[in-house]
Write a protein that binds this DNA or RNA. Sequence first.
DNA 1: TCTCTAATTTGACAGATATCTATGTACGAG
DNA 2: CTCGTACATAGATATCTGTCAAATTAGAGA
Lengths: 129, 129
Amino acid sequence: MSKQELPIVDVGVQVSAEACCAPLVCEPLNEAEATELAPLFKAIADPVRLRLLSLIACHEGGEACVCDLTVAFDLTAPTISHHLKVLKQAGLIDSERRGTWVYYWINPNVLARMSALLSPTSALAGAPA
Amino acid sequence: MSKQELPIVDVGVQVSAEACCAPLVCEPLNEAEATELAPLFKAIADPVRLRLLSLIACHEGGEACVCDLTVAFDLTAPTISHHLKVLKQAGLIDSERRGTWVYYWINPNVLARMSALLSPTSALAGAPA
DNA sequence: TCTCTAATTTGACAGATATCTATGTACGAG
DNA sequence: CTCGTACATAGATATCTGTCAAATTAGAGA
């Protein structure tokens, strides 16, 4: 239950002999890591937010203003605003006001981290080290 | 709104001149694609399910029985069973009964697809093609 | 068949979430 | 300063989700 260090991928190969079945061949996510990572995936676990992310990424310059995003959906502006806030609070996007408009862009580091966790070379996919 | 073809990454570079801001430099996810992909991320958007996935992947042979998984949490067996069902219905894991025990293993294809979507070379991260 | 264990299903319930309308705030143009 | 537009916040509500207790199914062994 120690929660201080949070490596994304552990290296130690550990074998436990108490289970009824197979022993471990790599270190699984601990509770603290899972608690930290789950909100990132929860943020993109919505069709509107997936499309928002994609719309932002596909705009020239890698950024888009809210007016561009709102017209792409059959949803009210407050709803889009809500979804953008969820993405921003998760750290997936950032924003800046320029005059009348507010521009959003993607934080590629967080996305890359999520991608790495799901990649075949990570502990989550069963890589031995 | 055509929903028949679902390529994960489109290649067409398209420029729209109606927006108040920047034009598109790649094809964003359409509604059908987003609707198909969101449930995959929803399935792993929970700390318990992330750990379940990781525990299964880290077991020797790439599979684990439910008894191994249940003891790793302070949760009841029905709750673990529920989370395993969510993961299975999303296609992330598969299972088989062998005598008394039920074994689960990961479907690496689905995980790889999700990883690819989040990778820096995909449309969601803003890759131009 | 009877019983024990492994796992799932059902039903209930508290808490989270997506959406809307109404309101508020920030900025630019007259 | 006032007005209009862009965006965010607040509050309300219907739906979804995670959890548990209780009941059910499935297999092993006596």
